[in-house]
């Protein structure tokens, strides 16, 4: 009996911990966004450095994954659709799956693994080596100088990466479909154009990727900022970033899809 009550208490405690963590994360984000003092140096320079670290350095993994996913989609789609004689719809299949789902979701998952974990480790290490404290002692708010540029860099880079991923994937699909399997190019692109709507598909996919960028970056910087400043604490925080961010992306994807495409 006591054991059951202990378990319930444990559940309650972890629930409270989680709510507290969400509260701390929200306070951190609000202060990072609305604080003013960045010390010296323009915010755009700091932002450019972070977009480089978060976006440009993620470009290779995003492009390579995009090409391959597009090619696989093209091949799988062709093999199924050719049985019904509708292989010219491969373009539409590839484009719709990429633009609506795979582009934002896979990019966000890769982004969490590539950029999110790096952000957490970097900020955690800055905390462990007292760089954040010393910055505060000098009179610069680390939330503004360290956290804010990284946050905005993530929110800006994610949708761009997702667009690049989708576009590269579609070209990968056309490489397999048109150049290799011999689907007529006109119907490949034509079907795609007819099936994909700018407002309902491209923009909604873009909104998804902005939301994912926001959530993944937020989780990553908070885990770093809140990490226990030891080597073990940082490694656990990095793992948590990847796990939480991936789960958040997949869960949110379902909700967003239900809201955006559910009533179509």
């Amino acid at each position: 009996m006591n054991r059951i009550i202990d378990q319930i208490a444990l559940l309650g405690r972890s629930g409270l911990d989680m709510i507290q963590a969400i509260g701390r994360a929200t306070i951190m984000l609000v202060q990072a966004i609305f604080g003013r003092n960045t010390g010296h140096g323009s915010f755009s320079t700091l932002l450019a450095q972070q977009i480089y670290a978060v976006g440009v350095l993620s470009l290779i993994i995003i492009t390579v994954s995009g090409v391959f996913i597009g090619m696989v989609l093209g091949l799988q789609g062709y093999n199924i659709l050719v049985r019904y004689g509708t292989e010219q719809s491969v373009g539409q299949l590839v484009a719709l799956s990429l633009v609506r789902e795979l582009g934002p979701v896979v990019t966000a998952l890769l982004f969490a693994g590539r950029a999110g974990s790096a952000l957490t480790a970097e900020i955690g290490l800055m905390k462990a080596t007292e760089q954040l404290s010393s910055m505060e002692m000098i009179g610069v708010d680390p939330l503004k100088r360290i956290i804010a540029p990284r946050f905005w860099a993530g929110v800006i880079s994610m949708p761009l990466l997702a667009c690049i991923f989708s576009m590269v994937g579609i070209f990968g699909g056309s490489m397999v479909g048109v150049d290799w399997l011999g689907i007529y190019e006109g119907s490949f692109w034509g079907n795609m154009e007819q099936a994909v709507d700018f407002r309902n598909d491209v923009i909604d996919g873009l909104i998804k990727s902005v939301v994912f960028g926001f959530v993944v970056t937020w989780i990553a910087i908070f885990q770093g900022y809140d990490a226990v400043p030891t080597s073990e604490g940082i490694s656990r925080a990095t793992t948590r970033t990847v796990v939480y961010a991936s789960l958040a992306v997949l869960g949110l994807d379902f909700i967003l899809t239900a809201v955006m495409f559910g009533d179509l």
Partner: peptide, 19 residues
């Protein structure tokens, strides 16, 4: 506080240089 901290220096245990 900002002004007060400009009158204070602190040497951290690990040095805490900005890497």
């Amino acid at each position: 506080l900002f002004r007060m901290r400009s009158k204070m220096g602190m040497l951290f245990q690990s040095g805490a240089l900005f890497t």
